[in-house]
Every structure is written in C-alpha cells, then in structure tokens.
Amino acid sequence: HWRLDVTFSEDASRIRKGNGPAMMTSIRHLCINLFEREGSKLTLPKKQNKAAWDDAYRAKVLFD
C-alpha cells in the first residue's frame, strides 16, 4: 500500500463510487508490475516520468 500511495498518490484519489476504486487499484498494481519487470535501474517515479514522455520507452515497458 505504501508504494501505491507514494508513487501514485492513491490516498489523494477522489475516485470513491462504484467499481472505480477497485479498478484503479488494479491498474496501478499492473503499472507497478510492468515497471518492475523492465530491467533498468531507474526509480519507479523516474520510470513513470520517462514513460510519460518517451514513446519508445513506454512501448518497451508495455510490450517487452
């Protein structure tokens, strides 16, 4: 839970109704697992930032 809160600011999320919170938690877990599977030594926040700005890196994270 700590990693989700620190990396994705999960506690500050305003998604509160229906299936939204559970779905977003699943998506965040998936993202963490994909970033961990990627082999570089960058920290998780740096991987997030790089994936947001670099299409080739994002494709590498998603499809390799």
Rank of each mutant, 00 (worst) to 15 (best):
H1G: 04
W2G: 03
W2F: 07
R3Q: 10
L4A: 11
L4R: 12
L4H: 14
D5R: 13
D5S: 13
V6P: 02
S9G: 09
E10H: 11
D11A: 12
S13Q: 05
S13D: 13
R14L: 13
I15R: 03
I15E: 00
R16Q: 12
R16S: 10
R16C: 02
K17Y: 08
G18C: 10
G20K: 05
G20Y: 03
G20W: 04
P21N: 04
P21S: 04
A22C: 10
M24T: 09
R28P: 01
H29W: 07
H29M: 09
C31Y: 00
I32K: 01
L34R: 09
E36I: 15
E36F: 15
E36Y: 15
R37M: 12
E38A: 10
E38I: 11
G39D: 05
S40K: 09
S40P: 07
L42S: 06
L42A: 07
L42D: 09
L42E: 07
T43M: 07
P45A: 02
P45H: 00
K46P: 07
K46A: 13
K47C: 14
N49L: 11
K50G: 01
K50T: 04
A51D: 06
A52Y: 09
A52V: 06
A52L: 11
W53Y: 10
D54I: 03
D54Q: 08
A56D: 09
Y57A: 03
Y57W: 02
R58L: 04
A59F: 11
K60L: 05
K60M: 03
K60C: 00
V61P: 00
L62G: 01
F63W: 07
F63N: 07
D64E: 12
D64T: 10
